[in-house]
Simulated scan of single mutants.
Amino acid sequence: MIDRRALLRDSGAVALGALALGAVAGGTPAVAQDAVNSTPLPDPATSPVPNPPFPRGLNHAERAHLETFDELDFDVFTHADWARLGESHAPNIRVHWPDGHYTDGIERHIADLQALFVWAPDTRIHEHPIRIAMNEFTAVTGVMRGTFTRPMPDGKGGHIPPTGKSYAINMVTVGIWNRRAGYMDEEFLFWDNLAFYSQIGLA
């Protein structure tokens, strides 16, 4: 028996890993109808693209997971409405970050998300160029944007002065959902930290 969670965790290519899960499970993940025959997307971080319609062929739970995730990024995250994070995240959620560390619990995750808004209060996500769903898994790409306009805590009791520079980074979130509860039990966040820090003038 293949442990699909372990397979996902060890995959370097997130989108391909999510698609591979469909083959392993003997099914086909629901992806955007035009994905196979469309022309390649431009870089969504530099050439914004419209949000596509939801994929065809989703079952009720898969559609609900993607709708909840849209609500999470476009409304809850973008407006820093942390009281609503429990609509999409389990109380004991494990979140894996791009640098390889992970955290447990929704309160810790809220604190980590709030830290982004300290130095970039306009942080937001309005685009989900690709949405994939199959069974309890979703893989969604997004573009996170913001501007380094306020001092950034350096973790040593001091602050890094703002550079005034904006950032727009492509990211991927892979979620493992609890079907009965309707929220994620585990979340994997992927983006290029070097690109991130370079854009805000810290690398």
Rank of each mutant, 00 (worst) to 15 (best):
I93M: 01
R94P: 00
D75T: 04
W82K: 04
D70W: 06
R84K: 11
H101G: 00
A61E: 03
G86Q: 06
P55K: 05
L66K: 04
L66G: 07
G105N: 04
H96G: 08
L85K: 02
I93S: 00
D75N: 07
E71P: 01
D104I: 15
R63F: 00
G86N: 12
H79P: 11
E71K: 12
G100T: 10
I93T: 04
H101A: 14
N92D: 15
T68Q: 05
T103F: 12
W97K: 03
A83C: 10
F69I: 02
E62S: 05
E71A: 07
P91Q: 02
A61H: 09
P91N: 12
L85P: 01
R94N: 08
D99P: 01
R63W: 06
F74R: 07
P55C: 07
A61F: 11
H60C: 07
N92P: 01
A80N: 06
P98V: 09
W82C: 09
S88Y: 02
F69S: 05
Y102M: 15
W82V: 15
A80F: 04
F74N: 06
H79A: 10
E67W: 03
L58T: 10
A83Y: 08
T103N: 06
D81N: 15
N59E: 10
L66Q: 03
D104Y: 13
V76Q: 06
H60S: 12
L66C: 07
G100Y: 14
L72H: 15
H65Q: 10
D81A: 15
H60K: 05
F69M: 10
L66R: 01
D104N: 08
Y102G: 06
N92K: 03
E87D: 11
R63Q: 08
E67L: 10
L66A: 06
G86I: 03
P55N: 00
E62I: 07
E87C: 01
G57M: 00
V95D: 05
L72C: 03
D70R: 12
